[in-house]
Amino acid sequence: MGIKLTERPQAQASGMETLEFKGTALSDEEFKGGKVVTVSGAPNAQYGWDAGVAIGRFLHELKEGRLIGTFCRSCNRIMVPPRMFCEWCFRNTDEWAPLKDTGVVNTFSLCYVTWDMKRLKEPEMPAVIEIDGASPGMGIMHLLGEVDPKKVQIGMKVRAVWKPADEREGAITDIKYFKPM
């Protein structure tokens, strides 16, 4: 006997009636203790992605403590992260465009759990930073730091905080975070 979606049983003020389910209940412990037969495995998947021209130059500049984009003469955009072709105009980009390491918060989130769902008292603050010198809407994805979470705002001016030169390795993490100016 099915239940029509339009006729969902309503919980009564006097309490729900006891429902009997068929089958065998299993607890978390029983799964973990191997009482339920599963087969475990994990892939050994490792990659070395070619950076190519655009990403390669971007990473090189990060190591030098600089940001760089590319310019498309056709749509007049300065794009960051850089690319060797414009995805709007479908043509090669024309020039490299050195950029500042400052910008404006386009959007942010206050994250009170880590990626594996552990509680955080002090939130992580991912943000998209529209980089000064690049076209509107052109930004890089990073973290905010040295700022009270309550004070973070969209439109806030921020500056990159770099790792010391001898610790930089040509990675997005060569910038530690962006902090308010």
Binding site: W49, D50, F90
Partner: peptide, 16 residues
Amino acid sequence: VTPEVSYREMIYEAAV
């Protein structure tokens, strides 16, 4: 090996 191009740059060349 094609270290000189990213997959994006490689596909772009074929598409053009």
